[in-house]
């Protein structure tokens, strides 16, 4: 390679790596034997590098490789999820039971009694109270608790206590058994439920049976 060939050194290198040769380089290679030889050397070296690299990385893993990957993945997954999976089902079952027990529907609600089905009580002579009769108890209002998932049965509550009941149910559903919800200061005072005071009964003068009072011995 002569002094004039130095200008083509980089072009020869590029051509050896696969780049197309320019017309100038092609013309020079036709005339210059040393540069042609240099190009052939470079091309052989490039081929050797590529071949060695391909051969060097053309290794295959051992037969235990894939089983070990599966084993490692399984153990890692078990370590990651086992405690969670082990406890989740019992916890969910317990939650289901507790939630079901807390539902008002778990215990059958008292059904409203129809007026027509009331059996008349036998007449008992009771002295008529002198105090003016209390007004009739207000009619019970039907409150449907807001539950989007399933239909809720009607629960009869006295009027004025709907808000109180709703607050109490919300307290239960929030997971806090807070009885103070029933005695909130802003809660409405207990309405008159129409409880009639017990009638005053005159004291009875009970005396044991004697021969004088029951000469015939008849048990009344």
């Amino acid at each position: 390679m002569s002094m004039g060939c130095d200008v083509h050194a980089d072009a020869i290198l590029e051509h050896a790596l696969g780049e197309p040769a320019s017309a100038e380089l092609q013309a020079h290679l036709r005339e210059c034997d040393p540069c042609r030889a240099a190009l052939e050397r470079e091309q052989r070296l490039v081929g050797r590098i590529d071949g060695e690299l391909r051969q060097a990385v053309a290794v295959v893993p051992s037969v235990e490789f894939l089983p070990r990957v599966r084993q490692r993945a399984a153990s890692r997954t078990e370590t990651q999820f086992a405690p969670w999976m082990r406890w989740l089902v019992p916890v969910a079952a317990t939650l289901a039971l507790v939630t079901w027990l807390r539902q008002p529907t778990a215990i059958p609600a008292a059904q409203p009694v129809a007026t027509s089905s009331v059996v008349p009580r036998p007449e008992i002579p009771v002295p008529v109270p002198t105090a003016p009769a209390k007004p009739a108890p207000p009619r019970m209002a039907a409150v449907r608790t807001p539950a989007p998932r399933r239909p809720q049965p009607e629960v009869l509550v006295p009027p004025g206590e709907e808000a109180l009941l709703r607050r109490f149910v919300a307290t239960l559903r929030s997971g806090r058994f807070d009885g103070s919800a029933l005695v909130q200061p802003d809660a409405a005072p207990p309405p008159d439920l129409g409880i009639v005071p017990l009638a005053e009964m005159p004291s009875l003068d009970l005396k044991p049976l004697t021969a004088e009072s029951n000469p015939e011995g008849v048990i009344p």
Binding site: V59, P61, V69
Partner: peptide, 13 residues
């Protein structure tokens, strides 16, 4: 090889 297998296993996992 042994190191490469170990690393490749970890990468796959």
């Amino acid at each position: 090889r042994e190191d490469a297998e170990d690393v490749a296993q970890e990468a796959l996992v």
